[in-house]
Design a protein around this nucleic acid. Structure first.
Lengths: 153, 153
DNA sequence: GTGCACCCTTACGTTTACGTCAATTCTATA
DNA sequence: TATAGAATTGACGTAAACGTAAGGGTGCAC
């Protein structure tokens, strides 16, 4: 069996998909394309976030998997746990209005936004405290090196 | 043997410290005073960050331990690891100018400050992305409930 | 036929700062 | 003296998202 050889995506006649443009991709290419490791892709699959087809034992990722991965990565970027991402994605139904999914997503998003803002406040706090103590340390250091030049020149 | 009974610190005649005002405190009081758990205090000791005296097997914290704990908690607050805090504290020498300690502290602080600022940027990023996607979700939700009221009223 | 380049599964390791028992001992007090 | 309230030393557990081998298979360019 032959897959799309790396570099060209023309005239593929594999028995998995006759619909042209299915654009199946193996794990290596997938990983490169999205800047993740193979381990990560397998891990996401293990957690039920991805579900690539198989050609024997080899994973084949479709357009759908790519869309899902993009969502996962966006979720991670904004600080959702994989568990949260899964919950939201699990509610997706291509045949419905997805109102429930959207509501859950919005709900989780509001909470996450609040967490992020709190974190931001904590970091600002830390930055201030740290800046202050750095000023003290600089002060102490200068007091230890200045004396000889106190009435300098 | 008798310790300062909880609530009064007068006329203590224990054989550990004759100097009045040594103000020895047991782990429970120490924990309450600084808002940490007993486990935390023992953990810090295990990591070499604290070194309370002993009365038999009972830990007795002195003024010095309190000062160190304050430093630890400040360090944690600004995001230093316990390892970092230890490194800095280990350089403290009550008989010297502590120039080396201060320099190390300043150095670590600069790096930590940079980390905090990077984190802040990441969080700001996340907040923006999340806000954007929330807007999209709201949009989609409104499109699913609006149709009946598209030319409402 | 062999050396790569990829792919697979299984499974333990990593990081940090504690949490959470468990079993025991001390001691102050009613 | 019985009991409740501190303290002690182990020592395993936790969380999250992968990292990192180990051991093995497949196809293909030379």
């Amino acid at each position: 069996m032959k897959l799309v050889s790396p570099g060209e995506a023309a005239a593929n006649t594999n028995d998995i998909s006759d619909k042209a443009g299915e654009d199946l991709v193996r794990i290596g290419e997938m990983a490169k394309k999205y800047g993740v490791t193979l381990r990560t892709l397998r891990f996401y699959e293990d957690k039920g976030l991805l579900n690539p087809q198989r050609d024997g034992s080899t994973r084949l990722y479709t357009r759908r998997d790519k869309a899902r991965l993009k969502l996962i990565l966006l979720g991670r970027k904004v600080g959702f746990s994989l568990r949260d991402v899964k919950q939201m994605m699990d509610l997706y139904d291509p045949t419905g209005s997805n109102t429930k999914q959207l509501r859950l997503t919005l709900d989780k998003s509001e909470k996450q936004l609040a967490r992020l803002q709190k974190q931001r406040a904590l970091i600002d706090d830390a930055i201030n405290e740290l800046s202050n103590s750095m000023a003290s340390v600089r002060q102490m250091l200068s007091e230890r090196s200045a004396p000889q030049a106190s009435v300098a020149r």
